[in-house]
Design a protein around this nucleic acid. Structure first.
Length: 823
RNA sequence: GCGGCCGUGGCGGAAUAGGCAGACGCGCACGUUUGAGGGGCGUGUGAGCAAUCGUACCGGUUCAAGUCCGGUCGGCCGCACCA
């Protein structure tokens, strides 16, 4: 060990040693308790950014900490390698997507290794590798066979720039999530997964995930969007079929003054055919169809629609009400039709005001400030039923059940539940993704490819024009197939899978990443799963985590996974920002990890990231803070270098000889305790580090006093290095070696703390007078409450404080404070 | 609009179960070491001359409130015509 901290030499030395000894390799070991720590795998863009550094540093500390605590840790890494950028590069620069991607993976793997991350690289997966996507295709087929994958003609979200279909989730503010282009609609035949079949379980299981942030659970809950209510059948005058609507407010049924169908509702065209209303209705439908979602939603508050010349009958009171169509009623939610109660629904209220519909109040707010006969806005809260026949006078919440019972009795309706969650559109008109392993046969329809023929490989003979159809269609050979069922000539599916599918099960594949005969060995899955700690950005709170939960659940139903939910604990790390803003090229405030590592080393970068902020909060990048972290590592290094000699060769134990010894032993043990709790439990590495800093400060004080209890110094130095090891592994390996240890610190045991050393003879306590701090006092530690109180009350300082005052009562908290209430 | 999170020194942040507000670090100031610079080591650092006052603001509960309750203001995030 050199006198000066040479991070470059140290970091490359130890990275090389780790690599040579393959120290991070893991295998199943039933004798040990397992721990699976997983960080969200990156898209191989080619360069890591600070978000990656933070994510993977946190995961690495957890992993190393668990290893030192005796766990058999699985800590893998891989690549979410399919996706658009590779294909765009192919179009723009004429590079093959596979070559582009593999080169980027190579580059990024090197950068991750420079950070000293403890991954078992033998388990590395890349979703674009045939050995991986073979099993992706296998899963697709399992889901298809179970009836969870189906093809449907539908108007879909279409990004004219990416030339592909997008899932609802990938349309943000009516724009393409990736390129920001306005998304339009297109009629296409697409593959869907029936995630709606799992809506209830995906929702119900959230309660069983105490290790997830409340925020994420709420976001998922809202996304699934469960609504309970009733379906009600309305008759349409002069039309045979009944009109079914869904409502969450059956109590307001007497207040219905008109009906609204979605413009896409299948009844609409039949209802206006040959009537004077046909022309205007069709024109409206036409107009709505050509609107993108952004245009449709930007008109919030200003309702549009047309009366279609028909009337419907209220099943409860026989009242005839007009039927409209309007784009505020969505075809893909509920039944695509609603009963309108303008008095008690704000959207209906706005529509009624604009179109001059009747507004009949049926719920009395019981508030003199609200005039129900002249509402200024819809009254949506609970109240007392009025104008409502059999439920008059009843509380509106109670009336919901009463009316629903009545509807069911009379066969006019039934209880119903609806979810906002839609089925998942999984096909993409793209090349760089997993080919959908389906074959279309004129006689047999859609048939899955035979398992022994998997993987269906991506063809190499394709053209990237960036226009129109899927590039797979330009391959001469790809489309040709024999029907897996009847053997006749058939055609392959040309679309590929949404890349969200690839990332919905990678955590399972890590359990047995090189298995060629099966998706994974069930015993291995059983040993490693669940993921004990999942760490990643909150931007994946909804989509990725919901899809992954769905996959896990479906595979569980198929008998493949041992548990329904994959992630036991979830940590959503905060963003790395600079000067209060998100790092971005356009603002020009991006800090590159490469530069920081080059200037200060990986250990400093890791330490600063861990120290600057707790992991789930935003982290404001500060160059001065990085320098502080670097300075601290130098200080530690110096302390170890300067004091190691004094402690060298000492094997026997030691006794605490004086106050300096006691003080150092106290701080050392308190620090071990603090770091153990903070790093192991709540992942607050910032406070763990601050306590190590206090430990180091105490060590310098000890040195300054010239104290040399060799055994104590030896323990202090070793413990200091052990405590820091998960966070700054390179420098710690170096110091550990210098202290005469022969085994790598990676495999060393986490230090235990000695409660005895933390017992103090005297403790400083606080004297409060009426809750205000007045005096501090040293008293013997660990007194019984009565004794403690007597000790304090008999003290001269306290007596002086209380002179001339009448004590009403005293509250004594031993070892902490005493509060004296006086008059 | 609905839902969630959060407001603490000049700055990042601490206070984990209601019990000394401001740990630790940054910055700043001073001392010391050094030929100088840098670096190291050390001391001080919420406001106020003080009594005291201080955790966005107003009120409440309590012996005791940054922490619990009600309200106001401000910020961030998610969803958003979901019947």
């Amino acid at each position: 060990m050199l006198k000066k901290y040479n991070f470059r030499a140290i970091e490359s030395k130890w990275q090389q040693k780790w690599e040579e000894s393959n120290i991070f390799k893991t295998h199943e070991d039933n004798a040990k308790e397992k721990y699976y720590v997983l960080e969200m795998f990156p898209y191989p863009s080619g360069k890591i950014h600070m978000g990656h550094v933070r994510n993977y540093t946190i995961g690495d500390v957890v992993s190393r900490f668990k290893v030192m605590n005796g766990f058999n840790v699985l800590h893998p890494m891989g690549w979410d390698a399919f996706g658009l950028p590779a294909e765009n590069a192919a179009i723009k620069n004429n590079v093959r997507p596979d070559i582009w991607t593999w080169a980027h993976i190579e580059e990024m793997r090197g950068q991750l290794k420079q950070l000293g991350l403890s991954y078992d690289w033998d388990r590395e997966v890349a979703t674009c590798h045939p050995g991986y996507y073979k099993w992706m295709q296998w899963i697709f087929i399992q889901l298809f066979n179970k009836g969870l994958a189906y093809k449907k003609e539908n108007p879909v979200n279409w990004c004219p720039s990416c030339m592909t279909v997008l899932a609802n989730e990938q349309v943000v503010d009516g724009k393409c999530e990736r390129c920001g282009t306005l998304v339009g609609k297109k009629e296409l035949s697409q593959w869907y997964f029936k995630i709606t079949d799992y809506a209830e379980r995906l929702l119900a299981n959230l309660d069983g995930l105490p290790g997830w942030p409340q925020k994420v659970k709420v976001m998922q809950k809202n996304w699934i969007g469960k609504s309970t209510g009733a379906d009600v059948d309305f008759e349409i005058e002069g039309f045979d079929d009944k009109l079914k609507i869904f409502t969450t407010r059956p109590d307001t049924l007497y207040g219905v003054t008109y009906m609204v169908l979605s413009p896409e509702h299948p009844y609409v065209k039949k209802l206006v055919q040959g009537t004077p209303f046909e022309k205007e209705t069709l024109e409206y439908i036409e107009k709505v169809q050509h609107m993108s979602d952004i245009e449709r939603t930007s008109t919030v508050g200003e309702k549009t629609g047309v009366f279609i010349g028909r009337h419907s009958t209220n099943p409860l009171n026989g009242k005839k009400v007009p039927i409209f169509i309007s784009d505020y009623v969505l075809m893909d939610y509920g039944t695509g039709a609603i009963m309108a109660v303008p008095a008690h629904d704000q959207r209906d209220f706005e529509f009624a005001k604009k179109f001059g519909c009747e507004i009949t109040p049926v719920v009395d707010p019981g508030n003199p400030d609200i005039d129900v006969s002249d509402l200024k806005e819809a009254f949506v809260a609970e109240g007392t039923m009025i104008n409502s026949g059999i439920i008059d006078g009843m509380n509106s919440n109670e009336a919901i059940a009463r009316i629903t019972d009545y509807l069911e009795e009379k066969s006019l309706g039934a209880r119903a539940v609806n979810y906002r969650l839609r089925d998942w559109l999984v096909s993409r008109q793209r090349y760089w993704g997993t080919p959908i392993p389906m074959v279309f046969c004129d006689s047999c329809g859609w048939v899955p490819e035979k398992e022994e023929n998997l993987p269906v490989l991506l063809p190499a003979d394709v053209e990237f024009t960036g226009k129109g159809e899927s590039p797979l269609a330009t391959s001469e050979t790809f489309a040709e197939a024999a029907c897996p069922r009847c053997g006749k000539k058939a055609v392959r599916e040309m679309d590929t899978m949404d890349t969200f599918l690839d990332s919905s099960w990678y955590f399972l594949r890590y359990c047995d990443a090189r298995n060629e005969g099966s998706i994974f060995d069930k015993a291995k899955e059983k040993y490693w799963m669940n993921v004990d700690q999942y760490i990643g950005g909150v931007e994946h709170a909804i989509l990725h985590l919901l899809y992954a939960r769905f996959f896990q659940m479906a595979l569980c139903d198929l008998g493949w996974t041992s548990k329904e939910e994959p992630f036991e604990n979830l940590l959503t790390q905060g963003m790395v920002i600079k000067d209060g803003k998100k790092m971005s090229k356009s603002i020009g405030n991006v800090v590159s990890p490469e530069e920081i590592i080059d200037k200060y080393g990986a250990d400093t970068a890791r330490l600063f990231i861990l120290f600057a902020s707790p992991p789930d909060r935003e982290l404001d990048w500060s160059e001065a803070g990085v320098e502080g972290a670097f300075r601290f590592l130098n200080r530690v290094y110096r302390a170890v270098f300067d004091m190691a000699e004094a402690a060298a060769g000492v094997t026997e134990g030691y006794r605490l000889e004086n106050e300096s010894d006691k003080s150092l032993a106290f701080v050392m043990n308190a620090s071990i305790k603090k770091v153990t709790e903070d790093a192991g439990g709540r992942f607050n590495f910032n406070t763990a580090i601050s306590s190590i800093m206090e430990f180091v400060n105490e060590l310098y004080r000890y040195k300054e006093k010239g104290a040399v209890n060799k055994g104590l110094v030896r323990d202090a130095l070793n413990n200091l290095v052990l405590l820091l090891a998960p966070m700054t592994p390179h420098i710690c390996e170096e110091m550990w070696e210098h202290l005469g240890n022969t085994e790598p610190i990676y495999r060393a045991s986490w230090p235990a703390y000695d409660e005895e050393a933390m017992i103090r003879d005297e403790i400083e306590i606080v004297i409060q007078l009426n809750g205000k701090v007045k005096e501090k006092l040293n008293v013997p530690a660990n007194l019984e409450k009565a004794e403690f109180e007597r000790e304090v009350m008999e003290n001269d300082k306290v007596k002086l404080l209380l002179e001339g005052k009448a004590v009403v009562k005293t509250i004594a908290v031993p070892n902490k404070l005493i509060n004296i209430v006086t008059k």
